[in-house]
């Protein structure tokens, strides 16, 4: 009867090995996605190298769902550049165009005013109370590249979280059941 126990044991160990293998490959996918993102952060110097346009304030240049690639070099900010900035105390970054720049001679500090191409007035109402200028540390990056429509996937997933969970579970199931 020894051969039955042996084969059961081999089947069991095989299952465990396969499961471990699947878990490792799933982990690899997640880890490499994270690595790519972090590498992009290092290369571009921006804390979020890719952003999705969420508002219509830059129409018709950028629509909702378009993707922007950000790059933040040491070059000074100049008028006309499209920058992504984050106001202290607000969690959603804003993509708007620089319309005024005042750069100090001695310290190199800079006062920046922005405006959305599709907005009537400048951005002072969007800034914190009693804030009239952006400084360098508010700027998260300047937009250098553009890809239309691709961001819709993330907009749909943030607005309809159920789709996100369905997608994640289907992908997870596929990864676990596939035999490669």
């Amino acid at each position: 009867m020894g051969w039955i126990e042996e084969s059961v044991a081999s089947i069991k160990s095989f299952k465990i090995r396969q499961a471990l293998h699947q878990a490792v490959s799933l982990g690899m996918i997640v880890a490499s996605a994270l690595m790519i993102w972090k590498t992009l952060m290092c290369v571009t110097g921006s804390e979020s190298p890719v952003v999705v346009v969420l508002s219509e304030s830059m129409e018709p240049g950028f629509s909702r769902g378009d993707i922007l690639f950000l790059y933040l070099s040491r070059d000074p900010i100049r008028v006309g550049e499209i920058v992504v900035y984050n106001i202290d105390g607000r969690d959603i970054p804003i993509v708007h165009r620089v319309i005024k720049v005042h750069e100090r001679k001695d310290t190199g500090e800079v006062d920046i005013l922005t405006k959305g191409d599709n907005n009537e007035g400048d951005d002072i109402p969007l800034y914190a109370p009693d804030q009239y200028w952006l400084q360098r540390h508010h700027i998260m990056g300047r937009a250098v590249g553009f890809l239309p429509y691709v961001g819709w996937a993330t907009i749909i997933m943030t607005e309809k979280p159920i789709i996100k969970y369905v997608l994640i579970s289907v992908l997870g199931l596929l990864a676990i059941t596939s035999n490669d």
Binding site: P76, V79, I99, K100, V101, H102, R104, D117
Partner: peptide, 11 residues
């Protein structure tokens, strides 16, 4: 005071 001032006038 400022090494550079840039002011948009029209766009």
């Amino acid at each position: 005071k400022n090494a550079l001032n840039q002011v948009s006038l029209w766009d």
